[in-house]
């Protein structure tokens, strides 16, 4: 199993070769981070860390750990990489964080605008705006919302293959699908996971956070959203 990463780039005045080189560099960054943070590769730094074999984490791993701690605090424990079976698993945050780093490669390279979509975790360059469809959790050929994204959006759901959500508090998982829009994608990614797990409690937290909107859908097909969340664009 794996994640597909898509780039949508408006190159502006950049020549083709330059854009090709930037895309190569962005892809290389993703592969580099995957090498380091894969839980599937026994020799990745993360795998070794999980086995207690890393005495001094790299700066990158330190950054991921710090961001996980922040996300755990913000979600009041509903996002908790330390509660995963098999030990510390930051995957719910790393994908978005890595996409953001790949986007930075393009942005710093001078593209006019760009969107990176890492398996459903979307981030866009500052100052740009893209319409992103949110997959309907039950209707395969339909969306349940279209959201305008000028920073990031992430969806977490139990209907997605290979995705296993764990409630750190031992209860049920609240949502079949949860979407968070806004802010830094590393956090957005983690928040979507937390919202899928925690449902109403996490939605209330998000309602109080500036710059973030969110909604989730229960197994019974009811949608709950933050006050400012719009499910379509005009």
């Amino acid at each position: 199993m794996g994640t597909v990463v898509s780039f949508l780039v408006d190159p502006g005045d950049l020549p083709d070769e330059h854009v090709d080189a930037l895309l190569d560099a962005a892809a290389a960054e993703l592969h580099r981070l995957d090498e380091r943070f894969s839980t599937w590769k026994p020799n990745s730094e993360l795998s070794r860390f999980r086995r207690g074999e890393v005495a001094t984490p790299s700066a990158l791993l330190d950054e991921v750990i710090a961001r996980c701690e922040d996300a755990r605090d913000v979600t009041q424990g509903f996002f908790d990489p330390w509660a995963m079976a098999g030990g510390f698993d930051p995957t719910g945050l790393v994908k978005g964080w890595a996409a953001q780093r790949a986007l930075a490669v393009l942005a710093e390279g001078g593209v006019a605008s760009a969107l990176v979509n890492a398996g459903g975790d979307v981030c866009v360059t500052p100052g740009s705006s893209y319409d992103v469809g949110v997959q309907h959790p039950r209707e395969r050929d339909a969306l349940c919302a279209v959201v305008r994204v000028d920073s990031s959006a992430a969806t977490s759901g139990t209907y997605e293959r290979g995705e296993h959500l764990v409630n750190p508090f031992g209860g049920e998982v609240a949502a079949v699908s949860a979407t968070v829009v806004g802010g830094d994608l590393a956090l957005t990614d983690a928040l979507a996971t937390a919202l899928a797990v925690g449902g109403h409690e996490v939605l209330s937290l998000l309602d109080d956070l500036a710059g973030l909107e969110a909604f989730y859908i229960t197994p019974g097909g009811v949608l709950y959203k933050t006050a400012g969340m719009r499910l379509g664009v005009d």
Partner: peptide
């Protein structure tokens, strides 16, 4: 509570909406 919207492409087209990306499930992509 909201009923979950079911948005199919015809609606989006009628509204002149172009989707740039999809967030969500793997199988549809």
């Amino acid at each position: 509570q909201y009923v979950v919207p079911i948005l199919k492409t015809e609606v989006l087209k009628a509204q002149g909406i172009r989707i740039n990306a999809i967030t969500g499930a793997t199988y549809t992509s």
